[in-house]
Each structure stands twice: as structure tokens, then as C-alpha cells.
Design a protein around this nucleic acid. Structure first.
Lengths: 170, 170
DNA sequence: ATTGCTGCAAAACCTTTGCAAATGT
DNA sequence: ACATTTGCAAAGGTTTTGCAGCAAT
């Protein structure tokens, strides 16, 4: 009885998300991220690139386990540890965003290159990007007021998506 | 037998935080949060109230385990599960904030009543409050643009605090 | 041949749960 | 007495780690 609200979010079609990435570009970015750290173009990495390009297109958010299960079902042999290790690298390389859900758990999402933040549905946990934010100067000012050097920030908005609103949260 | 170690508003190693809560008010708020759910004024709850009031004064952020260890060391007999259960309730009651650190882990912090967000040092993980934010209308607009009904948001800024800057991160 | 990624299984970690006993009202 | 909370220990779930073997360069 753990994550009670994730059940209907696992479905293949995730309507409340934007597929606004150019997928060729995404493939390139993922490949570069792997390549930057080490050379080998291995089978698991190819599987990951392919699957992540697909997830970039749909805009769907996924857990580490989701990704592992999907790859394992579709292509066969891949280890959980490889998926964990790859996700870690790709988050580091800014290819993936780690999105905090309202219950404190998290999912990942392939992110476009430009500055954005996340709108998260507290019922189905779908995720949408948006671009509004405070200005860079404002962040600098916030930092200055407390003696911080600011280098990153994260804005997450929680609410109910249109699908869940219509279906009354069911 | 209570340990009155409340004399200083500065915790041993967490200087970069604001102790801006009125502690009497904080005690009241924590007690109410417990009381709202059920009557018993038990020993563990009194221990928690006392310790949390102290943490409110210092502004220090803490993990569940930190809190358990501290209580256990100072006052003796308390179960991990009790601490987990209490923290969960207090987060629900908005007495505690859950703060996401830059590495994806989290800590808790006693929060003042008014609207605020967190500035987190990526080196020492200290946490400071600030009040700047987007306007309520802006959030509504963000929601409207994507068919969401917005009901909450979280803004976290990451950087390096003055202490860590001075010490070069050591 | 060398390098280092990969899969597996075990270990480590963190959090939740079940239940008898203790505690507050 | 009664209703709840508590502590303990066990279970649960997730992530990391160690290492031998393998694949890519």
C-alpha cells in the first residue's frame, strides 16, 4: 500500500503532456551525454537512447523501474543497475529532469534544452513544462540578501490536470 | 529531567539560518497539530515538541534519522516509527516543510506560518527562507494555459552559502 | 590488449507495517 | 475501562555496490 496515486498514470498514453522536443535533436543530446563520459557505444546505451527518444516525444514522466521494465520487456537483457547508473549520468548531463511529485516521490522526464519548470498533477502525476519564472536578477538578489551565490533553482507547481478534473479524479 | 539546552539561538554548526520564529508560537502550533488529530499528550510528543521548538529557533534542517538520534540520545526511549509517524503528521499539518536538497535527498525544517520558499546550500545543505515569489495571478495563468487547477507550488534555490564560500567549500 | 561497461546478486538504506504492551483520558 | 499511541522487529521497497565476464575501441 505504498504509492496509492500512481495506478492510472502508467498507461501508455499520457495525454496531458507536451511532446515539444525535436526528437532527432534529443537523440543527439542523449548520445552526446553518454559519449562525453566514455566512448563505448554499447547495446544497453542504444536501447536507452531509443526508448528515451520515444519518451521525449510523448513527454511522459517515468520512474527508474518503469524504464527498466519497459526496456526489459521490449528488448530483453538489461540490468537494473545499468538503468540506475545511466539515469544518474543523464541527470548530471541535464538530459533528464528529476521531478518531485506531491507525495515526495519522484520521476524523471526527458527535458528540452531551454529553461523551464514543471506543472504536476497531484492525481495522475502527469507533468507539463512551462516557461514562466522569476528573472535572473531576482534570483541574484535573493542570493545576495542571504550571502549566497546562486547557481540553480527549481520551481514546481502542483494542481489537477484537465483530464483528472473532468473525470473527478478517478 | 528535561535538558534545558535552549540558551543560544545558534546551533553548533549551522550558522547560516534564520531563527525568525517566535518560539512560543511555534510550540503552540506543534501542539495544536498533534492535538488536532488526537488527544493524548504523550511523552514522545512532549519530547518532539521540545526538540522541534529548539530546531525552529536555530532554523536547522534535519533528517528523520537526525531527529531520532537526537531524541534518543537526549531523552532515552523513543521508537524510529514514532518519529516517522510524527513527521508525517506534522508535514501534513504544515508545521514542517520538506526541503529537497540538490542531491535529490531531503530534510525537514520547522517553518513559520507565512508564505516562503527555500534557499539551499549545495555544499553544507543549510537552508534559509525567503519570501520572493511569483504572484498568485501568475500561477493561475500558468495553470489556465495548460488546463490545470493550481493549488500549490514550491520554489527552491540552490547555491553556496557565505560560510562555504569563505572556506572554499571545506 | 586494454579499458571500462554490464549483469547479477548481495548488501545497504530508508520507510512502513503488524501487533502486543504501555499510556493518557 | 477504553481508545490510541508506542516500541519493537520484521517486512517492504528502492538504490548502491562488488565483482567476474564481456564488449568496444
Amino acid at each position: 500500500m505504498k504509492n496509492e496515486s500512481r495506478s492510472h498514470c502508467r498507461s501508455p498514453r499520457q495525454v496531458c503532456a507536451e511532446g515539444d522536443n525535436d526528437s532527432l535533436d534529443t537523440v543527439r543530446r542523449i548520445e552526446n551525454a553518454f559519449f562525453d563520459l566514455s566512448r563505448p557505444n554499447t547495446a544497453p546505451r542504444r536501447m536507452l537512447v531509443e526508448k528515451l527518444a520515444e519518451l521525449a516525444r510523448s513527454g511522459e514522466a517515468f520512474s527508474t523501474d518503469d524504464l527498466w521494465q519497459d526496456l526489459r520487456a521490449a528488448n530483453g537483457r538489461i540490468g537494473r543497475a545499468t538503468v540506475y547508473r545511466s539515469i544518474e549520468q543523464l541527470v548530471e548531463s541535464k538530459v533528464l529532469d528529476r521531478v518531485e511529485l506531491s507525495d515526495g516521490s519522484h520521476k524523471y522526464r526527458v527535458c528540452g534544452g531551454s529553461h523551464h519548470h514543471h506543472l504536476v498533477c497531484t492525481l495522475c502525476n502527469c507533468v507539463v513544462d512551462f516557461r514562466e519564472c522569476l528573472s535572473a536578477q531576482k534570483f541574484e538578489e535573493i542570493g545576495r540578501q542571504h550571502g549566497f551565490t546562486v547557481n540553480d533553482h527549481k520551481l514546481t507547481v502542483y494542481g489537477t490536470c484537465s483530464r483528472c478534473l473532468k473525470s473527478g479524479g478517478k
